[in-house]
Nucleic acid binder design. Sequence first.
DNA 1: TGCCGACATGTCATGAGTGACATATCGGAG
DNA 2: CTCCGATATGTCACTCATGACATGTCGGCA
Lengths: 182, 182
Amino acid sequence: MSLRHALLGLLADGPASGYDLLKVFDRSLAFVWPATQSQLYGELNRLADDGLIEVTNEGPRGRKDYSITDQGRAELEHWITDVEPDRIRRNDAMLRVFFLGTVGPEHAKAYLEREAAVHEALEELLGTIARDTDWDTNDFNRYGHLVIESGQRYAHAQAEWARWAAARVDDLDKNEAPAPTH
Amino acid sequence: MSLRHALLGLLADGPASGYDLLKVFDRSLAFVWPATQSQLYGELNRLADDGLIEVTNEGPRGRKDYSITDQGRAELEHWITDVEPDRIRRNDAMLRVFFLGTVGPEHAKAYLEREAAVHEALEELLGTIARDTDWDTNDFNRYGHLVIESGQRYAHAQAEWARWAAARVDDLDKNEAPAPTH
DNA sequence: TGCCGACATGTCATGAGTGACATATCGGAG
DNA sequence: CTCCGATATGTCACTCATGACATGTCGGCA
């Protein structure tokens, strides 16, 4: 049910159409909660049916501007303060790490070094975004800046871990077949 | 399609029944790729239909021991080395951060401090697991140890970030209504 | 004035994930 | 010998997510 609240959160800043929301979404929330266009439009209709948002203006090309209702604002605040966040973190890349023993130490090292590179690139990308954006325009941006900072720290930690883990593979390998020294 | 490969990965270590796999799953892979019992049993049947695993023994209570086939092993290795991992990270807790402006600085700080506490507890839990487990029994455990280490670093980084972010809320608040000094 | 890119909303089929429910048997403690 | 907890597998209804496809309009530039 998070997409629902993501849309409420965006509309809390002011009225917008599905098309507007989709664009904002892809540049911000999609990093932590991706959604497709079809999902977004469907959810907007459901939110309107439930009275959490309403159409306050209609423009050309069937454009509908949605505004959050009092009920919607109440639901948003309830969700933020009272609902315990879902802690589930699916991580396709980390799942593979469990099975690196099946592909041999060379492939294992290569895999981990690639992970390091990917996260170093991500850290860099987020750093660029952090520098090139004016964050002090509204609350959404001010708090969005905190999210970007979290992403940078995450990327940095993952990259460091992957470098460390790649180095550990050699140790694991040696212990498996103990050195004949002595 | 990751559950599929998660099961292949577990079976690469040796034959097991769905029931066995479910228990191992909940204590290890579920941290990065949760799955329900119904999903797991369904996927095992599909894997057998596709020839990636096969029933090699039947025991009491309808127990079926599955073994990975050569085809299954090939598919597992292909997935690890050739398939680019999905980088999608849904994060319910971080999504809320974008909208903390709507609940006011007091609630925002409380939210971030709670996040810090949750991640400190997680770091501690993972530390306990790391210490109390004998990791050097097989490849699955040896690499699983690396995953745990990653989790600890993640939890630590998140906790530090949340403490820092909670402190930043005061700054955001002050900038919004600039101090009347001078 | 004719065309094209951006605007704008929607449907549909498919698959993945969730949680409750159904069902049956084995083995050991009392 | 009886009961119960653990073993063991499965179905079902429902929701969420994905990606492709469908459809139409507005506005400005050439």
